[in-house]
Design a binder for these strands. Structure first.
Lengths: 148, 148
DNA sequence: TATTGTTATACTCTATAACTATA
DNA sequence: TATAGTTATAGAGTATAACAATA
């Protein structure tokens, strides 16, 4: 029996608060762990989206990143200039274009992921076994939350 | 086999990776839950720091927020114009100033905290008991990580 | 001389409005 | 007409360089 849809109980407010503040502060620290200083957060995010989706049109990317179309035009142009994406004509609609990531982008993303994970692993290495187990158990739940 | 004090094991890399990506995505969503659209993330952060530390000089704030001194000059001026901080002369050093938050800032921060918590509580309310227990157990560990 | 904070100025990222080409 | 993308332009936020006042 799990309560309507809202909160779990009164004393859980503290847990929610702790969770929120920890997530915000951790994310700030993670954000500074950039691989390539010349890549903005949105550029990184676009590459991540392309890595998941394979390819997309500028319009789709703008909607996914919650950015206006003209901003995406600029971002895609910068990524193309850096050799990280390729632009091709859309097969069915000559107004659209198709953006695809290059191999260079793939290896760069992989290095980025490695660096950030290494930093986080260094931190988690200083936790005791019980704390680490709690984190491991929570990771999938956090992922679920993030995509809800 | 290397591992001095570092990571826990090979398969834990996946957990670290999941943790990192979940934290980043959750934080992006939390960031959009702003109380006052007229307050930038850094302004919010400065108010948060003042709430914790009581008061600070512009230089201290710049170092804590990882922002250059001229940027903090501007931020503090904006906060003062909005009636959220007060500037006073430093008692011992006439070069420095002391920045303190006003009561208006306190109540605004409280409202902000409430809003974000409500949003997060709505999400966590859809978790089952086991998932929620995992999160509750991990919250203090995440806090510890964030301040390491 | 070194340090704290400020002013002047430029750069980056994003937005809105107006335009072009295609559907 | 409606839609995809672009160009032109403006605004917010931060940085660097040069400067003022105080230590």
């Amino acid at each position: 029996m799990n309560m309507p849809e809202l909160s779990h109980g009164g004393e859980d407010d503290a847990a929610v608060n702790a969770l929120r503040s920890a997530v915000m502060r951790l994310s700030r620290r993670l954000k500074h762990q950039r691989v390539d200083e010349s890549l903005s957060p949105t550029e990184m995010s676009v590459l991540g989206t392309l890595a998941r989706c394979g390819s997309a049109t500028p319009g789709e990317l703008a909607r996914k990143e919650h950015v206006q179309p003209p901003s995406m035009t600029r971002i895609v142009a910068l990524l193309e200039a850096k050799g990280l994406v390729r632009l091709e004509p859309h097969p069915d609609d000559r107004r659209q274009k198709v953006v695809t990531q290059t191999e260079r982008a793939e290896s760069m993303l992989e290095e980025s992921r490695r660096k950030r994970n290494a930093w986080l692993a260094e931190l988690t290495g200083e936790l005791d076994e019980e704390e680490w187990a709690a984190l491991r158990a929570a990771a999938p739940v956090l992922e679920k939350l993030a995509q809800m």
